[in-house]
């Protein structure tokens, strides 16, 4: 997949207490080919506090409308500035970047569990769509601190069943994603995961114990996003590997996590 630098236009925006959904449209050319789990590097502005681009997961791609959707958690100066963008803002992005989630072969219909925590649910929408289109059976297990974190549920519902947890019990089962009874049922063929590291470690541990295939998506701090600066490395069984280039998606067997 060829990486490109492209100007998009903010055409729609939806905001929640912790996050914002940005729909960015390409007016002149089709969006580059991109796969679930890949990310984009967003130029925020030229203010001193947002010198580097911000790496953001691809939440969804609407090819017909030439729209790239980003679901962004408002955590720092860059993401807050993005949330403040007025409609029609020109947004410069580099994409697609990184190594995507591995999809099962289309010939074999698989049951896939997509586990997202907090803003980690972002990449799972496009992944769920692609799995659904290929005839697999995605199920979403989404967790948050409270109901405020469980967003875009109407979108997720189109592609698979939802299982929800919240730490305060304001939606779904009370507790962490690992407390959800779906994990006690029949094992899925594959687990795809994205979220805070402690949650991904817990999911990886579950997968390891059950002998299940599992991929996780990391978010180490990055500078270039294209494998040039070697800043975002993760310690893997093959040594230091760039999360931006050889990740962000890794199979748990590649990682040196204590699981």
């Amino acid at each position: 997949m060829t990486k490109r630098i492209i100007d998009l236009r903010l055409v729609e925006k939806r905001e929640w207490p912790q996050a914002v959904l940005l729909k960015l449209r390409s007016d002149v050319e089709p969006l580059p080919e991109a796969a679930p789990g890949q990310f984009v590097q967003v130029r925020v502005d030229q203010s001193p506090a947002t010198y580097l681009r911000r790496p953001i997961s691809i939440h969804f791609i609407d090819r017909e409308r030439r729209e790239l959707w980003l679901l962004v958690r408002k955590v720092g100066a860059g993401t807050r500035a993005m949330a403040d963008w007025p409609l029609q803002t020109r947004v410069n992005v580099v994409f697609p970047l990184g190594h995507p989630y591995t999809l099962p072969k289309a010939s074999k219909k698989e049951r896939c569990l997509l586990v997202g925590g907090g803003i980690g649910l972002a990449p799972l929408l496009y992944l769920g769509k692609m799995l659904h289109e290929q005839g697999h059976h995605p199920m979403f297990l989404l967790g948050g601190r409270s109901a405020d974190d469980l967003i875009q549920l109407n979108e997720f519902e189109q592609y698979g069943e939802l299982c929800l947890t919240t730490e305060d019990g304001s939606a779904g089962i009370k507790g962490l994603v690992t407390a959800h009874p779906v994990l006690q049922g029949p094992s899925p063929d594959r687990i795809y995961c994205c979220g805070p590291k402690p949650m991904m470690v817990a999911v990886a541990r579950y997968a390891r114990q059950k002998g299940l295939w599992c991929e996780v998506s990391l978010e180490n701090t990055m500078a270039c996003g294209i494998g040039a600066c070697l800043c975002c490395v993760e310690d893997t069984v093959e040594g230091h590997r760039c999360v931006c280039q050889e990740g962000p998606v890794f199979n748990i067997n590649q990682l040196k996590w204590q699981i």
Partner: peptide, 22 residues
């Protein structure tokens, strides 16, 4: 192998790196 992660910190109009010649 270079230095351990984290190796980068954004600073006002710049960045610090500690890649360590990987």
């Amino acid at each position: 192998e270079g230095n351990a992660y984290p190796r980068m910190a954004e600073t006002p109009s710049g960045m610090l790196n500690a890649v360590g010649l990987q």
